[in-house]
Design a protein around this nucleic acid. Sequence first.
RNA 1: GGAGCGGUAGUUAAGUUGGUUAUAACGCCGGCCUGUCACGCCGGAGGCCGCGGGUUCAAGUCCCGUCCGCUCCGCCA
Length: 608
Amino acid sequence: MSVFLATHERTHSCGALRASDAGKRVVLTGWVQNYRDHGERIFIDLRDREGVTQIVADRERIAAIHAVADQFRNEWCIGIVGEVKLRGQQLAKGVPGEERKLKAMTNTKIQTGEVEVWIDEVEVFSKADTPPFAIEDDVDTNDSVRLKYRYLDLRRPRLQRNLVMRSQITRTTRDYLACTGFLEIETPFMVKYTPGGARNFLVPSRLNPGNFYALAESPQIFKQLLMVAGYDRYFQIVRCFRDEDLRNERQPEFTQIDIEMSFVNEKILQTTMEGLMAKLWKDVLGIELTLPLRRMTFAEAMDKYGVDKPDLRLDLILTDVTEGFKGSGIKFIDDAIAAGGIVKALRIPKNEKFTRALIDELPNFGKQYGLKGVTTVRLQEGGVWQGLKGVPDEARAAITAKVGAQVGDAIVFVADKWKVANTALGGIRLHLGDKLGLIRKNEWQFMWLTDPPLFEVDEGEIAAAHHPFTSPRTEDEDMLETAPEKVLARAYDLVLNGVEVGGGSIRIHRSDLQARAFKALRISDENQRAKFGFLLDAFKFGPPPHGGIAFGLDRLAMLMTGAEYMRDVIAFPKTQKGSDLMTDCPTPVSAKQLDELFIQVKPDLPVK
RNA sequence: GGAGCGGUAGUUAAGUUGGUUAUAACGCCGGCCUGUCACGCCGGAGGCCGCGGGUUCAAGUCCCGUCCGCUCCGCCA
């Protein structure tokens, strides 16, 4: 053990000292953030996760200490004992006009800027190599370098603040849910493989040659079984694993706040969750949310915003103008309508930033959504459209009125299949909102998205939009057999500033209804048994009505911390190819290890 | 699976039409400095130009391939 620590205990963090502490003898520990050597006197910024304190090694005070401090370099880990002094205290002694000087000496950039600590004892716990990048918030360093030296990156105040806040989020969540009657119960990570949905990571079973576990995509099935077992309010802050292609907001392992409740309807569940959000925002951010949160149906969201997760910090809305364009004589529009598509319009109120250049890049922007064309018009005096000719006066006036455009406004039109037109114009809405500075960045716009379709139909294939246990709306049950694509679900997403932060549903608990849902999904009895036999069995033994929700903790943390990248709220994240650059993972394994698992790797794999 | 951007000193970047010894800033090392806090001043070291091939008298620069990182589409939550 360090001699220093045998006789001293830290008295303050590096963010704690204030003017009122002047004169105290304190013990500080931390890392050398920076040093300014003035010969006789060395100023050192000492950093820990709470902040920075200036410490001073003065030759006149103690020459030996000064000699040690002279060696200090960035990121050395040290401990000191010293006296807290007001900045420049010794200057003020009887010298005229020094009061003002003293004031100028406080460093307003740091919390402890009024004081400094004059070192009387010191111990170097450990020296440090020159770090590959500066430990500062505004360092602009390549992600791969940051990830390789993640432990250094994590020393940066910004990331420390993010992880502190993430910890507050999970603590507050546990507090709230525990106080609301929820039990925290763990479920297995290594589970039965079920095809469909996201790809699973597989884990070979040595004890069962040729057999594999899957890493759980989510605890969905288990939490429903816990409801059957009578643990009627469950939660878990749990890791989930999905072997899909990655994005900024997607990691191969991510964390959910997973929740399930019995004897509830949508209203009760959503209200309970609103309470969680309100507590999180109050306790972690100090912000009062107004409850209840806004609700919007899936149909309205798609119609007005083109997406199922509208960003309501932006007021622009979409309008369906298919009717107005019928028989317009504009070829690409007529073609789209003839093919069963729609025409959608986005009104951009008069805006000087909406330049020719911005308009010209829209078709190219639309291409990434599969859009063939984007047309933008500007409304001139007398209802004239600048930019699109040939639309009859009457139709033009009707469309302009429906969109609600005024002279000087612009209207962006797209025409395509329903899904493409909506998704693309929804994307354009966000793109332009950003470019034109119309997104109110300081707002927290929550909303519940409700009544989504129960099934997704894609090229004749029908699939569960959420999962096959999602309950249809009672009034839609009869359409399960006749028009399944029209059945709406008792499902809901919580959307915040255009990000889906959570989603869930009321589950089916009646076996007759479940059978009809499976039938609509064209899942055979045999298949049902093979995949979900245990759940169907369990549902024979008095399952309660139940429903749940899961929040993406990483996404919540991203939004609450204002982080731009999900990697910035995860201590040890993975790259876009799922690798960990610090530990160099994943790696090949030895033939012996494979042998033990009865696994043979294809011989023509490229060697890394 | 597809599209785009990037990889040059420890870090971030510049590098012209292919042409002498590959620049700069910060950082690093040595020295000086009594109030700095992005301290300042003087001096110095530091390069497999991601990797492999090709074209050429000559490649950081052109061509082909490949690896890695990032963003997006598909996919997925």
